[in-house]
């Protein structure tokens, strides 16, 4: 039981890291990683919203009809984002200005809606909150690593503090959009390499789990789909080998 909870928490940090494995939340990742402080601020804000929205959506999952679930999720997520935005504006104005429009854009961050749809609406409140915490920490970790690389190598500073050698020999393009993509790609490659040691990136399964259309898919049952695809997947694996 304890292990199960721990695995839910840890899954989002490394194995299913939302940024480096699931490649979600790319927009704030690229935009907010020019400074470590901004990246940490964005990560914490997104984590808070993830935990709260996952918990509330999970608590209301039996009350919310399927037909209106997405508008309901958006209202819940937007509410928590606005709460975080108001509190940050009041008590952390410098960080609020640094995050700018990207703070409000957490509403449409696909990590949050994705976890609500894929996890919170199928699991209990505690598990959903833990999933939100794990995914949020994974997002925060990815943003922190990427911002550290970009700020240190691109601007020669860390959290605004000038670093002697790097201040002289920095690579300004890393702080621009192309540099963001470059660092992002390298980090994804590193993550794939790490996962390769752990059995490689898993092939897409044909089960319902993780399928965004699963709730509405009535034409073919999932088991039939699995039976249909299993020989194809096997053949594909043999060809690859």
């Amino acid at each position: 039981m304890k292990n199960n909870k721990l695995s839910i928490l840890l899954r989002g940090i490394i194995l299913e890291n939302p940024v480096l494995v699931l490649v979600l939340g790319t927009c704030p990742t690229l935009a907010q990683t020019t400074s470590v402080i901004g990246a940490v601020g964005m990560g914490i804000a997104a984590t808070l919203v993830l935990i709260l929205s996952n918990a509330v959506i999970s608590a209301l999952r039996n009350l919310i009809p399927d037909t209106v679930r997405i508008p309901c999720y958006i209202v819940i997520i937007a509410t928590f984002v606005t709460v975080v935005q108001l509190l940050m504006h009041a008590y952390l104005p410098a960080l609020y200005e640094m995050l700018g429009v990207y703070l409000a854009l957490i509403v449409v961050n696909c990590i949050i809606l994705g976890r609500a749809e894929m996890f919170a609406r199928k699991n209990g409140v505690l598990d959903s909150a833990l999933d939100g915490l794990g995914m949020g920490l994974g997002f925060l970790l990815a943003l922190f690593i990427m911002a550290t690389v970009r700020e240190v190598l691109g601007a020669g500073t860390f959290a605004g503090i000038a670093l002697p050698f790097f201040k002289t020999y920095h690579i300004p393009i890393l702080n621009q959009a192309p540099g963001g993509f470059l660092v992002f790609g390298i980090l994804i490659a590193v993550m794939n390499k790490i996962k390769e040691k752990d059995g490689g990136v898993k092939r897409k399964s044909f089960s319902c789990e993780g399928c965004p259309s699963a709730a509405h898919c009535k034409k073919v049952s999932c088991s039939e789909m699995s039976e249909f695809h299993a020989p194809m997947a096997k053949e594909e694996n043999e060809n690859d080998a």
């Binding site: 009350l63 919310i64 009809p65 209106v68 309901c72 209202v75 819940i76």
Partner: peptide
């Protein structure tokens, strides 16, 4: 039911 739930939320 959907409309009521959404309104209440």
């Amino acid at each position: 039911k959907g409309a009521v739930v959404l309104t209440v939320i």
